[in-house]
Design a protein around this nucleic acid. Sequence first.
DNA 1: TAGATTGTTAATCGATTAACAATC
DNA 2: TAGATTGTTAATCGATTAACAATC
Lengths: 211, 211
Amino acid sequence: MKHGEAAVSKATESRMPAYLRYLKGEAGKGVEYVSSAAIAKDMGLSAVGVRKDLALVSSRPGKPRFGFEIKLLIEDIEKFLGYHRWANAVIVGAGGLGRAILAYEGFENYGIHVIAAFDASPAKVGAVGGKPVYPMEQLKEIARRFSVRVAILTVPRSAAQEACDEIVAAGIGAILNFAPVHLHVPEGIAVRYEDLAVSLAALCGEGAEDQ
Amino acid sequence: MKHGEAAVSKATESRMPAYLRYLKGEAGKGVEYVSSAAIAKDMGLSAVGVRKDLALVSSRPGKPRFGFEIKLLIEDIEKFLGYHRWANAVIVGAGGLGRAILAYEGFENYGIHVIAAFDASPAKVGAVGGKPVYPMEQLKEIARRFSVRVAILTVPRSAAQEACDEIVAAGIGAILNFAPVHLHVPEGIAVRYEDLAVSLAALCGEGAEDQ
DNA sequence: TAGATTGTTAATCGATTAACAATC
DNA sequence: TAGATTGTTAATCGATTAACAATC
């Protein structure tokens, strides 16, 4: 089986962002090559698993005695994850969390332009960190005009389903939902729940087991 | 096999928060019973999978012809997830994201008290939404005093590893990291990466496949 | 009762781990 | 060369799906 040509399993794909993060960290320190054993140790995985994962996405094999060339690996993983084909995103709900995300600069590294935020309250309209906050009524128009592919939903729980419906009506097919509410959406709309409290609670559980 | 007595798989456990969110939504509408088929349809799972999951955590079986009693199920899942044993958390980094999380009220439903935030910059010290922001120097003392179990790391990327080291030195055993950086931690410290850009990029990918 | 719905056992599928040959 | 490291094939493990019996 040639490198980078097989079907990649879901489990492997889900680990790729973590590899990328790790490899960028090592590259930043000036390291040029890294072995599967080193990656495995630092990331808490098995070395064989790492080799299998990397074989699936890397365009050329690692070198025995050296390991993998980090720069090359980073390129391959970014290409695999599609961080090169750009997508436009918007934020719906310009409260504290929405504004914080709007001001966040890190999205550009992942092929995402967060172009604007929207809010139902006129008081929130304006700009944050150089990016515009529009009234909710303009969502549809702007989503169409800029072919917005994904919306980040940061309204309060009670407004979430209604805002969600407006996002769907605007033709946006993917929603990253920060409201701790199950959203009812038509088939074909991708929803991902980003529940801070759940992540935190899960972590508490892990930590607690060691007692 | 009796209900609620078997070893619960990791996959099952990871779905529990989603069930909880869904069931609370239905309970809020006044629904009292729900069938595995209905849950499966609304959540995009298989009915058999749902029954198997619920059998593992529920204290009594569902009723043929009725389904599962929602109120009971919510209790059982919350108990299973440990949302009843409380834990204290702190935020490290009182920038936009840190302050937004500090002001967020939803953690209490998950058995988590976010008691304070910390920041290295004196300008950030004060209070947000009734909760204190302390200088970084006080982290260790307060972590010890209140037996803080988990830290939410919301400092800029460049400050992340250093802040992480301070968290570990303060005796906190679990870190929810929002900085897009791989953290090096001693064995036994649980780290979870909450990378907004990665979540968003993954969602873009899903949406794009339907084209 | 009849029918909807549950719970369980067996079969399939997918992912990880173990063992080993290939390579620089 | 010798040794570290890779890639692959086979074996194990875990999770999901399919088929069916049990129950209210």
